[in-house]
């Protein structure tokens, strides 16, 4: 297996974790924090931390190795990663401090940014 294969594998683990955090926070929003709230907040925050780190580190490594970091779709994905990262951090903080009722708006931003990154990663416009 090449280095590209391993980098892609680790990048994809990060993507699974990141989307897992969106799914977890969305479940909290739909089901409320009364049922399994502490467990879901813990899961969502850990998935977000792991997913955010792995996607960024191995994504940049892949871009430097196999693409061009100045490609429009990569720059767009990086900008969206920071948008999603900022709103995801806010969502995690709100749920952790018991203010989950205020998490709807940042969660919508986090979800849309993550979905947009996924679209850019697969469709690679301009590549």
């Amino acid at each position: 297996m090449s280095r590209y294969d391993w980098l892609l594998f680790l990048h994809l683990i990060g993507a699974f974790a990141l989307i897992g955090s969106v799914v977890t926070f969305s479940t909290l929003l739909v089901a409320g924090q009364r049922v399994a709230g502490p467990q879901l907040v813990f899961l969502g925050r850990r998935l977000f931390e792991v997913g955010g780190s792995l996607t960024l580190i191995f994504g940049i490594w892949l871009a430097l190795d196999d693409y061009s970091i100045t490609d429009g779709w990569i720059i767009g994905a990086l900008v969206l990663w920071f948008v999603g990262g900022g709103s995801g951090s806010r969502v995690g903080e709100l749920y952790n401090s018991g203010e989950g009722g205020r998490a709807r708006q940042p969660l919508i931003v986090m979800t849309l940014a993550t979905l947009a990154v996924l679209i850019l990663m697969i469709f690679k416009p301009g590549a």
């Binding site: 993507a15 699974f16 955090s21 969106v22 977890t24 467990q39 879901l40 998935l47």
Partner: peptide, 24 residues
């Protein structure tokens, strides 16, 4: 491919949610 990846990532996320709720 987008559908495949979106379905797979959502599926694994939901399974992780199920584990957390089952433990609770």
């Amino acid at each position: 491919l987008f559908l495949h990846v979106l379905g797979a990532t959502t599926l694994v996320g939901l399974l992780a949610v199920a584990v957390a709720v089952l433990i609770a």
